[in-house]
Amino acid sequence: MTTFKLIINGKTLKGEITIEAVDAAEKEKIFKQYANDNGIDGEWTYDDATKTFTVTE
């Protein structure tokens, strides 16, 4: 398992979430669903070196 981080830079929601997953593709799906469930629609980036997804509205 690898630890992945999501950084949220939303208009109404900001924060960080850290979760373990098998791979980045699995985690991306979970993070995007979390963002969608919380009304966050923005630009996504991924840094493989730090295993960090960022979504910015």
Rank of each mutant, 00 (worst) to 15 (best):
Q33F: 06
I7Y: 05
Y46G: 00
T52W: 02
L13C: 15
K51G: 05
K14D: 08
I7E: 02
F53V: 04
T56C: 09
G39T: 02
T45P: 00
V22T: 10
F53K: 01
A35P: 01
L6F: 14
T3N: 05
E28Q: 05
K29Q: 10
A21S: 07
F31I: 12
G10C: 15
T2P: 11
K32Y: 09
D48H: 05
E43V: 12
L6E: 04
W44N: 01
G42C: 13
G42R: 03
F4D: 05
D23M: 06
I8W: 09
N36I: 14
L6M: 04
D23H: 06
V55Q: 05
A35T: 05
E57F: 15
G42P: 02
V55R: 05
K11D: 04
E16G: 08
L6Q: 00
E20D: 09
Q33V: 04
M1H: 07
T54C: 13
T50Q: 02
F53G: 01
K27W: 15
A25H: 08
A24E: 11
A49S: 07
A49G: 04
K27T: 15
I8C: 15
V22N: 10
I40M: 05
N38I: 13
T2Q: 08
A21H: 09
E16H: 08
I8K: 00
T54F: 12
N36C: 13
D47S: 02
V55S: 02
I17L: 08
K32R: 12
V22W: 13
K11S: 07
T2A: 06
Q33C: 10
E16I: 14
E43W: 11
F4M: 03
G39Q: 07
T52V: 03
L6G: 01
K29P: 03
V55N: 02
T54G: 01
I19T: 02
D37I: 08
E26G: 12
K32V: 09
A21Q: 04
E26N: 12
D41S: 11
E57A: 10
V22M: 08
W44T: 01
G39C: 10
E26W: 11
G39L: 07
M1A: 07
D47N: 06
G10T: 14
K32S: 05
D23W: 11
Y34A: 03
G10W: 11
E16Y: 13
V22F: 13
T50S: 09
K51H: 11
T18L: 12
T18D: 04
E43H: 09
T52P: 00
T56L: 07
E28C: 15
A25T: 09
F4A: 06
W44H: 00
D41W: 14
A24D: 15
I7L: 03
T2I: 14
T56Q: 03
G10P: 01
E16R: 07
F4K: 05
L6R: 00
G42H: 03
V22Q: 10
K5L: 11
G15C: 15
D37V: 08
T54W: 11
A49V: 09
T45I: 06
E26M: 09
V22D: 10
D48C: 05
T18R: 09
E16P: 07
K5W: 14
Q33E: 08
D23I: 06
L6P: 03
K51E: 03
A21W: 13
N38S: 08
T12C: 15
F31M: 11
N38H: 13
E26T: 08
T54I: 07
D23R: 04
K27V: 15
A24W: 14
D47F: 01
K5Q: 06
I17K: 00
D37G: 04
K11V: 12
I19Y: 04
A25R: 07
G15I: 15
A35S: 03
F53A: 05
T50A: 03
T54Y: 12
I19W: 14
T45M: 06
I40A: 02
I30D: 03
I19P: 01
Y46S: 01
D23G: 06
A35M: 15
I30P: 01
G39P: 03
T3D: 07
D48Q: 05
T3V: 10
D23V: 04
D37F: 05
